[in-house]
């Protein structure tokens, strides 16, 4: 191992660069200008759906994990059942169940149709957000259960001995240490959540994947939109990984 720049890496980078040049020069990119505004909108939709569902899912996951790690059985059992069901069925099925199932159920009730919320409920994105949030909560509930259990017992006992109220223990001692332990896993799970977002295109939400499908249908160009799509997702993945690395670095790690 003599540093990063070894001869074969130079060759590989040259190959990658020439592949990039070849695809830039000999593939068709003339559609790009027409669809640029739509693509920006699609990327924005993908990102806000990712952020909103991850944050809401995390908010749900903390009580789910807490109930399983330390709750009484009448809270632990439903939490465990919820996580098992969410983790045991495909997200696509959950999404379609909510969208087609609830979407066909709601119009049957006149009071829903006349309510203020109806213009929102008629659109697709509430169902996408709901399904992705529940899915993230199910997976993260399991992660948080392990993280809550992994906090050393002595820390909690010390807090109790100091006379801290139970909620303060949770807020000051238990939750921060659990989140710190779970951070590397949470980063990976957020990438998985990003990779789950293109499924919302199947229920007509216009994310970046839906935009590329539309380009494919309009222009009959198959590979170029898909390749660009892969690059976009890799960039967002890179940003997530970098962001979580920053977060992990902010928390002082014990070295030995």
């Amino acid at each position: 191992m003599t540093g990063w720049l070894q001869p074969h890496r130079v060759v590989m980078m040259a190959l990658a660069l020439s592949l990039l040049l070849w695809s830039a020069l000999s593939l068709r990119w003339d559609w790009l200008a027409d669809y640029a505004p739509l693509m920006v909108e699609g990327i924005w939709n993908t990102i806000w759906i990712l952020v909103v569902t991850s944050v809401l899912g995390m908010v749900l996951a903390i009580p789910l994990g807490l109930a399983q790690a330390a709750g009484p059985w009448y809270l632990a059992a439903p939490a465990r059942a919820f996580c098992t069901v969410i983790r045991g069925t495909p997200l696509l099925l959950q999404l379609w169940l909510l969208y087609y199932g609830l979407g066909s159920l709601f119009p049957q009730f006149p009071w829903i149709r006349q309510s203020e919320l109806w213009p929102i409920l008629r659109q697709a994105w509430p169902y996408a957000v709901l399904a992705l949030t529940l899915s993230f909560a199910g997976y993260e509930g399991e992660v948080m259960r392990g993280a809550f259990k992994g906090v050393p017992r002595g820390q909690l006992e010390a807090a109790k001995a100091m006379g801290m109220p139970r909620f303060t223990i949770l807020r000051r001692i238990w939750l921060p240490q659990a989140v710190q332990r779970a951070l590397p896993t949470l980063g990976g799970e957020t990438v998985l959540q990003l990779k789950a977002t293109p499924l919302v295109a199947t229920i007509t939400v216009l994310d970046i994947y839906a935009v590329s499908s539309r380009v494919r249908q309009d222009t009959f160009i198959v590979y170029e939109p898909l390749l660009l799509l892969a690059v976009v997702y890799m960039c967002i993945t890179g940003l997530i990984v970098l962001g979580f690395r920053q977060l992990e670095r902010r928390v002082p790690q014990r070295v030995a």
């Binding site: 990003l194 293109p198 898909l226 799509l229 892969a230 997702y233 890799m234 993945t237």
Partner: peptide
């Protein structure tokens, strides 16, 4: 691991 399965399947 960085690209969604759906897109890999299509490609």
């Amino acid at each position: 691991r960085a690209v969604p399965e759906l897109i890999l399947i299509l490609i």
